[in-house]
């Protein structure tokens, strides 16, 4: 696998997308392989949606504060990162590629997890505790569909998985490592643009089931507030609709099809606002919700 990465011939599927990846950064290759160990590699001749290279910056930067660049189809849309931040750069870069181009789907800024055939979307703005709650649920055995994208398929209204490494930030890192120590975690990346970051690796069963869509059942808008008493309130569908319009990456681009898909999602799901100050309580509340109102 390392050789194919060096030769830019590593092809793999991540959810509905196929990626051709190359890299000459050994530490990146090692972390990528740990994170996606259960992923089936595709033939090197595969036609892919995205052709990505994560490469060392050339020139004097090879020796002085070495940097890494992210290339997509030969273009470099971002400023270089420090070399040892190659893995977060790849993850954010691939997210950007998907958000900018995957308009065959309605994309929500949302984590999505599934248990017993019921998908729960956790749409939220950055800083609301979405990734932390998502990782905690995965630590309790929920299937990870996605930490970042709720990919809604227009044809049948199901969520498509996109199981990827989930970036935990700052105080969430020790919280999750204590809450679910059996999960796989990557190295710590200090002082990224989002603070310190550690990735939770996607569990093997989530990767193996990345072609299995899930039916939406609940939409839960999470909000972490330190020391808050747990609140789980039903949310009227029209409020959920408004929040999801504002939360989507590509609602306006999706036109009437996106409107119909979003209406279908809101009708199919029960919607809730979750305010929590304690991760264990939040997980327990969602497990109770699934037990009482799942189907």
């Amino acid at each position: 696998m390392s050789r194919r990465l060096r030769e830019q011939r590593l092809c793999f599927a991540t959810g509905p997308f196929k990626v051709r990846l190359g890299s000459d950064v050994d530490s990146f290759s090692a972390t990528w392989q740990r994170s996606y160990a259960s992923l089936d590699v595709l033939p090197a001749e595969e036609i892919c949606h995205f052709r990505i290279a994560v490469e060392r910056q050339r020139g004097a930067r090879r020796w002085y504060r070495p940097q890494v660049v992210f290339r997509i189809e030969g273009l470099t849309p971002f400023d270089p990162y420090p070399l040892d931040h190659a893995f977060p750069m790849f993850e954010w870069g691939l997210n950007w590629c998907i958000a900018m181009s995957a308009h065959d789907y309605l994309m929500l800024h949302s984590a999505v997890v599934e248990r017993d055939g019921c998908a729960v979307a956790l749409p939220a703005q950055p800083g609301s505790g979405k990734s932390t709650l998502c990782a905690a649920l995965v630590g309790r055995g929920w299937r990870l569909l996605s930490d970042e994208f709720g990919i809604l398929r227009h044809a049948d209204g199901s969520f498509l998985p996109l199981p990827r490494a989930a970036p935990l930030k700052n105080a969430s890192i020790p919280l999750l490592q204590n809450f679910a120590p059996h999960l796989g975690f990557g190295p710590r990346y200090a002082k990224t643009r989002k603070g310190d970051v550690v990735h939770m690796f996607p569990p093997g069963d989530s990767l193996q089931r990345q072609a299995d869509p899930a039916r939406p059942r609940f939409i839960v808008f999470p909000r972490y507030e330190p020391d808050a008493v747990l609140q789980l309130h039903a949310q009227p569908p029209e409020v959920a609709m408004t929040r999801l319009v504002n939360n989507s990456f590509n609602y306006r681009v999706s036109g009437a099809q996106g409107f119909r898909s979003l209406c279908g999602l809101v009708r199919e799901c029960e919607s809730y606002q979750l305010i929590n100050g304690d991760l264990s309580e939040a997980v327990a509340a969602l497990e109770s919700l699934l037990q009482e109102r799942g189907r």
Binding site: P236, P237, E238, M241, G255, A256, F259, R260, C263, V266, R267
Partner: peptide
């Protein structure tokens, strides 16, 4: 396009 959503009607203008 008019779709009933809860107590409201969602309207999409093409």
């Amino acid at each position: 396009i008019l779709e009933e959503i809860g107590d409201c009607v969602a309207v999409y203008s093409n």
